[in-house]
């Protein structure tokens, strides 16, 4: 009786494959194979032209990535960009989330206004921002109104990357805000009541109650945002082409350019491996930090 029941509960191999087989095939084809392909391709050099033969060069592409100034700068710029844009977006998203949870009139409406831009796909947002930031566009007209001269924005090596940060934040902050508002809602009001009775001020409450209790959602949005921003591609492709003067060339865009425009897919593959390793490190750190809590 027991054995019959056990065998009824234990499905056959075909049934198991029927359930998890498609997902396993997809994971192998869509993630592991291309990653493996990038690793192996990064160890070769294929000279341009039909006569060239593929040559094994070991880690030479990686040595180039870390020693040739242009590549060095691309990696450095990508890291700097990540260090600036992620805390900036999540910090602002948190401030907005706190603001729209205050006792204010029309809470849901202001929240909706911040959220609406996130429904615009990045292509649309980039195009709109590209037009708005033109020298004869409305942003410069507004700056003129308050006495600031016309700014070059996307056409200046000093301002282009900041303009892209602004565009990505405009459509990004409302999205991360939603997760943070949900996290804040999960913190019970009674914790604050207790703190008030103990005489804790607003700032004190924020640092000793809100932040610690918001750790998990905060960590989640920070890591998810980091992955999104490492992969940021559309504004560079649509608006700047990585310029002016390479000022908006980040790893993701350079992978595309090396592979498809400079016909150097092996270098693109080495960059792919570096970028993937960067993202995996970030995700791994997140898992570590989240496990600590449990």
């Amino acid at each position: 009786m027991t054995t019959r029941r056990r065998s009824a509960l234990r499905p056959g191999l075909l049934t198991i494959l029927g359930f998890v087989g498609p997902a396993i095939v997809l994971i192998v084809v869509l993630r592991l194979m291309p990653f493996g392909q990038a690793i192996s391709s990064s160890l070769y050099f294929a000279p341009f032209g039909p006569l060239g033969s593929v040559e094994f060069i070991g880690l030479a592409n990686y040595v180039d990535l870390f020693t040739i100034p242009e590549f060095q700068q691309t990696i450095l710029r990508t890291l700097l960009f990540a260090v600036v844009i992620n805390p900036l977006q999540i910090g602002l998203a948190l401030l907005v989330a706190l603001l729209v949870r205050q006792r204010i009139y029309g809470k849901a409406f202001w929240r909706l206004l911040v959220f609406i831009p996130t429904t615009i796909p990045l292509v649309g947002a980039s195009i709109a921002a590209g037009i708005a930031l033109r020298s004869d566009g409305p942003i410069n007209a507004l700056l003129g109104l308050v006495g600031i001269g016309s700014q070059p924005f996307l056409t200046s090596p000093d301002q282009a990357l900041w303009s892209i940060i602004a565009i990505a934040s405009w459509v990004g902050i409302g999205y991360w805000m939603v997760f943070l508002v949900a996290g804040l809602d999960d913190i019970g009001g009674d914790v604050y009541e207790a703190a008030k009775i103990d005489g804790a001020g607003t700032l004190r409450q924020f640092f000793s109650i809100t932040l610690p209790l918001l750790k998990r959602p905060l960590l989640f949005v920070l890591v998810a945002d980091t992955v999104v921003n490492f992969a940021l591609f559309v504004p560079m492709q649509v608006l700047t082409g990585g310029g002016p003067e390479s000022s908006t060339t980040l790893l993701m865009y350079d992978i595309y350019r090396q592979t498809y425009q400079y016909s150097n897919p092996n270098m693109g593959a080495a960059e792919t491996v570096i970028l993937t390793a960067l993202m995996l490190t970030i995700v791994a750190i997140q898992f570590r930090l989240m496990k600590e809590k449990n």
């Binding site: 084809v29 869509l30 993630r31 194979m33 291309p34 990653f35 392909q37 990038a38 391709s41 992955v227 490492f230 992969a231 591609f233 993701m252 992978i255 595309y256 592979t259 897919p265 693109g268 593959a269 792919t272 970028l275 993937t276 993202m279 995996l280 995700v283 791994a284």
Partner: peptide, 14 residues
Amino acid sequence: LIPFESIAVPLAQI
């Protein structure tokens, strides 16, 4: 855990 974008280019070659 490997983000799709990071391997999109080699996947496109495959």
